[in-house]
Design a protein around this nucleic acid. Structure first.
Lengths: 241, 241
DNA sequence: CGAACCTTTGAGCGTCCTCAACCTGCGTGG
DNA sequence: CCACGCAGGTTGAGGACGCTCAAAGGTTCG
C-alpha cells in the first residue's frame, strides 16, 4: 500500500478533487520506517506528532498502574496515528508498531495549512477523526455488554471491514499479524481465554484465526453471533455537501 | 448554571478574548428545555443536531441487538451533546436527558461560522472534542482492565473532577442525580452488583453514594483504589499558542 | 395513597481468571 | 549443525468475580 490507502479511505466519505489529492500527496513526503515494537508515542509524552500509516499494523493503548495493558484500537494502512493528541499538551496514550511499518509524519501545521487550502479535505479529516471515535465507542460496547465470543468475533469482523475499505481484505478473510496476546489486550480478556474462544469459533465452523490469517468460514453466521452492524463505520458512499 | 459553564470549561484550555466570549454567547440564543427521559438524539437518526448543555445531566448510549444498554458517557453542564455526529449521516448513538435539562441547539453552520470568526474558539472546541474522546478511551480502560470496585470509584471520581471544572463539585463530593441502574449501564455491571460495590465502598469509609449525593469520605484513598490519574482530562491551565 | 421506581439483601451458578505445564516453530550462537 | 532460548499457542484444574433470579423495603410523585 502506498499513499492510495488514505485517499481511498477518505474517498469513501467525500469526493476528493485533484487539488485535494495533491494536498494529501504532500503528507507523504516525510516517509519513515519503524521496526516491530517501536513506540511512536508514549503516554505522557509532550508535543507528540501524528502520522498516517502507509504500510503495516499499529496499535494504540493505555497501561494501568498495575501494569495491565488495554489496547484501544488497531490501526491499518490509511489510518491516522495519534490524531487526537495533536491538541493535547501531553499524549494520553501510547502507540506501538505491531509489524514493521511505514508511516509519514503529519505536523499540526501541515494539517492546519491543508484545512485552509482544501476545506473539503478538512471535512474529510474531521470525519476520519469522528469515525475513529465511533470505533472506540463500539469497542466500549464490546467490553461492556458482549460475551467473550461475541466480542472476539466483533473485533475481527470490524478489522475485516476496515481492511476491505483499503483493499486488504474480502469476505473470505485477511492476513492478520496479531498474536492472541494482542487480542487479549484489546478484548479485556486473558490470552488463555482468547485461545479457548478462538478454538470454539473454529469448532463451530464460524471462523479460523491461525498462522497469521483470519478466515471467515461462515460470514453471515459470524456477523449474527457478533451482533455486528457496520453502520458506525459510516462508509456507505460519499456524503452530501 | 447559565452560559458560564461552557466558557468556564473552555477557559481551562484556552484564554478566551471578549470576542470569543461574545461568540459563545450567541450559542445560547435558542435555549430549550427537555423533560426527564427525553431522547434528544436516537441511534440511526439522520441529520441529528448538537447541543450545549446548560443545566442538568444527560447521557449518551448505544443499545445491543439483545436490548442491553451501554452508556458511553454522562454529560454535565458545559458539555457538548452529539458533537461527534454532526459529521455523520446518521447518528451512531442516542442521547437522553437524565434530569430535566436546559440546552441550546448548535447548528453545524453556527459552528463553522464561529470557526471562521474566532479561530481560537475553534481550537478550543476541537480540544473539547478530543477531551470527550479521551474520556471514552478511559472508560474503555475502565471496562477492560479494572475490577467492579475500581471502575465504580473511577467513574465517580471522574465526574467529580469534571463537575469541579464548572463549579458544581468540590473534594467533599457533589449532587448526583444518577440511579444505580445508570451506573450499572455505564460500568458494564448489573444493578445488583453496583449496589453491593457501593455498600463495600461505604463500609471501607471511602465514599458514599446516597440520596442523590456523592460524598468522598477519603478522597486520597479512593483515588488510590481507583488508580485515578486526571491527566487524560488535560486541564492544567491554559494551553500555549 | 397507590403505583412506579429505586434500593437492598440472599442464594446459587456460570464465565472467565490464575496458575501450571507442555508443545511448536524459529532465530541465534556455540 | 545442533543446542538452546524465546515467543507464541494449547490444554487442564480450581477458584473468584460478577450474574441471574427472587423477594422485600423505601421513596417519590401524580
Amino acid at each position: 500500500m502506498d499513499q492510495s490507502a488514505l485517499t481511498r479511505k477518505l474517498s469513501a466519505f467525500v469526493r476528493l478533487s485533484d487539488t485535494d489529492r495533491a494536498t494529501v500527496a504532500r503528507f507523504f513526503l516525510r516517509r519513515r520506517s519503524f521496526s516491530v515494537g517501536h513506540e511512536l508515542t508514549h503516554e505522557g509524552q509532550v508535543n507528540a506528532s501524528a502520522f498516517v500509516l502507509a504500510e503495516g499494523w499499529a496499535c494504540s493503548y493505555k497501561m494501568t498502574p498495575e501494569g495491565d495493558r488495554q489496547i484501544v484500537d488497531f490501526q491499518v494502512p490509511g489510518d491516522f496515528l495519534g490524531l487526537r493528541s495533536i491538541l493535547f499538551r501531553t499524549s494520553d496514550h501510547s502507540i506501538e508498531a505491531v509489524t514493521r511499518i511505514k508511516a509519514t509524519e503529519v505536523l499540526a501545521s501541515d494539517l492546519f495549512d491543508a484545512f485552509a487550502e482544501a476545506p473539503r479535505l478538512a471535512t474529510a479529516v474531521l470525519w476520519a477523526a469522528s469515525r475513529d471515535e465511533a470505533m472506540v465507542v463500539e469497542h466500549l460496547v464490546n467490553l461492556g455488554r458482549r460475551t467473550a465470543e461475541e466480542r472476539t468475533a466483533h473485533l475481527l469482523l470490524e478489522l475485516g471491514t476496515r481492511l476491505k475499505l483499503v483493499g486488504l481484505a474480502d469476505n473470505a478473510g485477511f492476513d492478520c499479524p496479531l498474536t492472541q496476546y494482542h487480542l487479549a489486550d484489546a478484548l479485556g480478556l486473558s490470552a488463555v481465554h482468547v485461545n479457548r474462544v478462538l478454538r470454539h469459533l473454529r469448532e463451530e465452523k464460524l471462523m479460523t484465526f491461525q498462522k497469521g490469517r483470519v478466515s471467515f468460514d461462515d460470514f453471515a453466521g459470524l456477523t449474527d453471533v457478533a451482533g455486528f452492524d457496520t453502520s458506525y463505520l459510516d462508509q456507505d458512499g460519499p456524503l452530501l455537501r
